[in-house]
Write a protein that binds this DNA or RNA. Structure first.
Lengths: 147, 147
DNA sequence: CTGAAGGCTTAGATTTTGTCTAAGCTGACG
DNA sequence: CGTCAGCTTAGACAAAATCTAAGCCTTCAG
């Protein structure tokens, strides 16, 4: 068993999630594979790597992993939900014109300002989402960025 | 014409958007109505208030308003995209267990930390999205507290 | 070790969400 | 007015997500 897999097994135990081959496969795909995968991509990806999982199971697994905090659904702007493993936090930049999503390096939002508005709410994680016109759209703009 | 409507008219002019009855209706629904509506709710809501707009038009309007920065698609965690009017900025708190979305008061994220990762990107707006277990879910939990 | 019990998985149907198209309508502007 | 470009529309279409009923597997008490 790989080091990665034992790390995942530990995460499952900590989250009180019943460990199944399918859930491992989904999480492993997200941790080691591409970011921002759609559920459909995950289904195809998982079934290409020897494991097998039906569509319904992938959806169920994503929900379970999401509730456990191991996976997060990220802002898309597109028609399909996209998922990220949450082991490495990062912020997002979204172009309002073409819909592109860019990852940005992590930095902490100072606690004092946030604490006032959170009012004691439980926080497991957070991210900052920036909106604007990306470089490409700004360059190819003609008054109003032709997408 | 209501004060609200003239405010919207001004917003349209500033954004260089052709003002149509349907776009007014969509924006007005989002500004004055419930927050975080799905496209489907907007279609139903608009058509219940005397105005009329087809599904395609609502989607087109949302895209146009989004490009103009008057409306924003917010992270949901659900199966359908949700939209928010952006006239008054605020942050979001999302419950990973039940999917509830709560608005939170605005505060600024200090610029220095952000500037480093933005690397000169154009920013029109931003928001912080917090994830956790909401009060209701924490109280009604069955022994697994702070997931 | 053994055998329930309840959660997990599955295929496929179904529902929901979002996009596209072709034709007609309308706001902007001279 | 008259024209043009952009907007709206109904409905077909495509994609995404959920539901269902039956069987399988992890767990845990005995």
């Amino acid at each position: 068993m790989s080091k990665l897999t034992s790390e995942l097994r530990e995460a499952f135990r900590a989250a009180d999630l019943r460990p199944t081959a399918q859930r491992y496969a989904v999480l492993e795909f997200l941790v080691s594979g591409r970011r921002h995968s759609t559920a459909g991509e995950i289904v195809r990806g998982v079934n290409r790597t020897g494991s097998a999982a039906s569509r319904a199971t992938v959806y169920n697994s994503l929900r379970a992993l999401s509730r456990a905090g191991l996976v997060r659904e990220v802002f898309t702007g597109g028609s399909a939900a996209r998922f990220d493993a949450t082991l490495h936090p990062h912020h997002h930049y979204i172009c309002d014109l073409c819909g592109a999503i860019e990852d940005m390096a992590w930095f902490e939002v100072p606690a004092p300002a946030a604490a006032r508005v959170l009012q004691g709410r439980h926080v497991r994680a957070y991210e900052v989402v920036y909106h604007g016109a990306c470089r490409r759209c700004r360059n190819s703009k003609s008054g109003r960025g032709d997408i």
